[in-house]
Computed example of a mutant assay.
Amino acid sequence: MPTTLITGGAGFIGRHVAEELLSRGHDVRLFDAFVPQVHGDPVRLPDGAQLVRGDVRDRDALDGALKGVDGVIHLAAEVGVGQSMYEVARYVGANDLGTAVLLEAIAAADVGRIVVASSMSIYGEGRYRDAQGAPVAAGLRRSADLKRGDWEVRGPDGQPLTPEPTAEDKQPDLASIYALTKYAQERAVLIFADAYGMNATALRLFNVFGAGQALSNPYTGVLANFASRVAKGERPTVFEDGRQRRDFVHVRDVATAFAQALEADESGRALNIGSGRSYSILDVARMVSEALGRPDLEPEVTGRFRAGDIRNCFADISAAEAALGFRPTRRLEDSLTEFAQWVEAETFTDNGGRMRAELEARGLVS
Rank of each mutant, 00 (worst) to 15 (best):
A175L: 08
I177L: 09
I177P: 14
Y178S: 05
L180R: 09
L180E: 08
L180S: 14
T181S: 05
T181Q: 06
Y183W: 14
Y183K: 12
Q185I: 03
Q185N: 05
E186H: 07
R187F: 06
R187E: 06
R187G: 04
V189I: 03
V189G: 04
L190E: 10
L190C: 10
F192G: 11
A193V: 05
A195Q: 09
A202P: 09
A202I: 06
A202N: 13
L203S: 14
L203C: 15
R204G: 01
L205C: 11
L205A: 12
F206M: 07
N207F: 07
V208G: 03
V208D: 03
G210F: 02
A211I: 09
G212E: 10
Q213N: 11
Q213M: 09
A214E: 13
A214W: 09
L215D: 15
N217A: 04
Y219T: 05
Y219D: 01
T220F: 00
G221M: 00
V222A: 00
V222Q: 00
V222K: 00
A224N: 08
F226D: 00
F226Y: 10
S228N: 03
S228I: 00
R229P: 11
V230F: 05
A231T: 14
K232R: 13
K232H: 08
E234W: 15
P236V: 05
T237A: 09
V238E: 02
F239L: 09
F239I: 02
D241F: 02
R243T: 11
Q244K: 04
R246H: 08
D247G: 04
D247W: 01
H250V: 01
R252M: 11
R252I: 06
R252E: 07
A255V: 12
T256C: 14
